[in-house]
Design a protein around this nucleic acid. Structure first.
Length: 580
DNA sequence: GCCGTTTTCGGCCCGACTGTTTTCAGTCG
């Protein structure tokens, strides 16, 4: 996210928190939160936008009207937002984080503050312990116990879950429910189904001949450490002290409406509801209604169709233009996992991977791939047992020999070559020329170093095909390194270098906002799992998820090519550069 | 605070669940 956008989003979010605790009009609070989400998603820094188009450009950001536009401009000019300062002066800052406690909302925080003088977490724990909180009107022992558990849960984890971590859990739950309970239809929903890079709660939707029994089975599955709710239509449980999973059971006639509703995103649904209202329709999780009459709901297709639009793939449902595209019949034909012909970034035992070439080939065959590129680290990457040239040559020989024996799958001799501080590459050109496929990447950099120039220079080398994990971010813990992605994308389009969508669960780099930012420049993308064990090659589906969220069609992704075409393209890149 | 092919004012998604209630408020998604 752009720096000014991130800062303004943070201030507006604080402002929203504080106003909520003060009891301000919830719609106003919501307007701030909406602006926060839009700013976080905006591909351009608002200062650039202001410089280029003036305040009118700011006003064109959806969800930003005159009030918030003024605050954005004020921040850019003074570094502050007066309204934020004023409101923050009225609310103890220690109260804001309390909104993250499950079971505790703004009304109760307000009450505890005004009645008991609570100004932070320590105060809150005190009035829970001494029983004061439970004596407030509307509260009682059970609510307070619930809040206490919310505090414990937040102190234990509180973090969003990477999608790659959620997938095995959700699939094991779905499997268990199919085996042990009366289920008919069953699907994940929520941000998990939209393949967001991190998910909060996990949502599952089902139909059943015996909903009560299904819900009871669910909340008593192995792994459940706490039951939050178990009603007629909804069960909610914490798995392994960490993952909240909600199961909702609905009637077959409203399954599609419920799936649509619980898949979200919230912004997508709000937008849909607005369109429904204009047409005298009402959408709920039970269906689409005209007055009392249900006009759609059995399938998701029927819901979208009732609003005169095409069914929208879940990965697009973020209110980023997909609704307009669906109305105008111009939704993209999205990349599918089944179209991926090979993995173009896997490590072997030669460097820091754990699988042999045979094991990698076998897994590729099992996944139905035609090829897989084994890209081990180059010599400078000593921490990762990067290959000296003699070992690289030995690997080349082994790959050639193995390819003689392999029938369905071809191994491509590759390397993940470090881009050195001066922008040169970690192997000489004559060595790179012997390799089928070369990705270049940065693993070491100085604090505050702007890496743009280094990457741009590397792209002048005719022997590299792609830039691996172009922003260097790690999903949990490390921000992107300072790099001007627009400049990189522009050069990539010029030179025919591809940009990697690194599908590793800990990276997802590029992610969907990055992809949306750069794809309009006409760059091509390549997917690689960066697997360090053959068993990690399943993560390709995470990369496909990012690509779909980035609106990519198969033509934009190199590894949808069959092997002969891929070889041709690999050669073209080298010819193209040498003829310039 | 935002927004507008019925609106520049009056809406803004809305239902489930729980706990505290004696008909509903708070929280959540």
């Amino acid at each position: 996210m752009k720096r000014n956008n991130a800062q303004i989003a943070r201030l507006l979010n604080e402002l929203a928190d504080a106003l909520e605790i003060l009891g301000e009009n919830p719609f106003r609070v919501n307007a701030y939160r909406k602006a926060v989400r839009v700013l976080q998603d905006l591909p351009e820094d608002v200062s650039d936008l202001l410089a280029r188009e003036g305040e009118k450009g700011i006003l064109e950001i959806p969800g930003v009207g005159s009030g918030i536009a003024k605050k954005i401009v004020e921040y850019l000019q003074t570094g502050r937002i007066r309204k934020h300062d004023e409101v923050m002066a009225r609310v103890p800052s220690g109260l804001l984080p309390l909104l993250n406690i499950q079971g505790l909302g703004p009304r109760t925080i307000h009450l505890a503050w005004k009645e008991l003088g609570v100004t932070g977490l320590e105060d809150l724990k005190r009035v829970i312990e001494n029983g004061e909180l439970a004596r407030l009107p509307g509260l009682g022992p059970k609510k307070v116990a619930n809040i206490l558990k919310g505090i414990e849960s937040l102190e234990r984890t509180g973090k969003r879950i990477p999608i790659g971590e959620a997938i095995p859990l959700v699939e094991s739950i779905l499997e268990a429910l199919r085996q042990e309970a009366p289920v008919d239809q069953l699907s994940p929903a929520g941000s998990f189904r939209r393949m967001k890079e991190t998910v909060g709660d996990l949502d599952i939707l089902a139909t059943s001949s015996d909903p009560a029994r299904l819900i009871q089975t669910f909340v008593h599955l192995p792994g459940v450490t706490r039951i939050l709710a178990a009603g007629e239509t909804k069960g909610s449980a914490i798995f392994e002290d960490r993952y909240q999973v909600d199961l909702r059971v609905v009637d077959n006639s409203s399954y599609g409406a419920a799936l649509q509703y619980f898949t979200g995103s919230r912004d997508h649904n709000v937008h849909l509801r607005g369109i429904a209202r204009e047409r005298g329709l009402k959408i709920s999780e039970y269906g689409v209604f005209r007055g009392e009459q249900r006009v759609a709901g059995e399938t998701e297709e029927s819901v979208y169709s009732a609003l005169d639009m095409l069914w929208i793939p879940p990965e697009l449902r973020e209110d980023r233009g997909e609704i307009e595209a669906a109305q105008e019949g111009r939704l993209p034909s999205l990349l599918e996992l089944s179209q991926i012909k090979g993995d173009l970034h896997v490590h072997s035992r030669y460097s820091d991977g754990h699988s042999t070439l045979e094991e990698i080939a076998e897994e590729a065959r099992r996944l139905g791939y035609a090829y897989v590129a084994v890209c081990d680290h180059s010599r400078t990457a000593r921490y990762a047992r990067g290959l000296e040239i003699d070992r690289l040559k030995k690997k080349l020989e082994e790959i050639r020999a193995l390819n003689e024996r392999l029938e369905d799958v071809t191994l491509l001799a590759g390397a993940e070559v470090d881009i050195l501080p001066d922008g040169s590459l970690d192997y000489p050109d004559e060595i790179l020329a012997e390799l089928d496929y070369v990705v270049a990447s940065i693993h070491q950099w100085r604090k505050k170093e702007d890496l743009t120039e280094r990457i741009l220079r590397a792209m002048d080398n005719p022997y590299i095909h792609a830039i691996a994990h172009p922003t260097g971010r790690l999903l949990t813990g490390r921000d992107p390194y300072p790099v001007d992605l627009d400049a990189v994308a522009e050069k990539a389009a010029q030179t025919g270098v591809w940009l990697e969508i690194n599908a590793h669960a800990e990276r997802l780099d590029l992610n969907d906002p990055h992809i949306l930012q750069v794809r309009r420049r006409g760059v091509r993308f390549v997917l690689g799992t960066d697997a360090h064990h053959a068993q990690q090659m399943w993560m390709m589906r995470l990369g496909v998820g990012m690509a779909r969220r980035g609106w990519l069609s198969p033509e934009e992704v190199i590894n949808t090519c069959p092997l002969p075409e891929l070889r041709q393209r690999l050669q073209e890149r080298r010819k193209r550069r040498s003829s310039v």
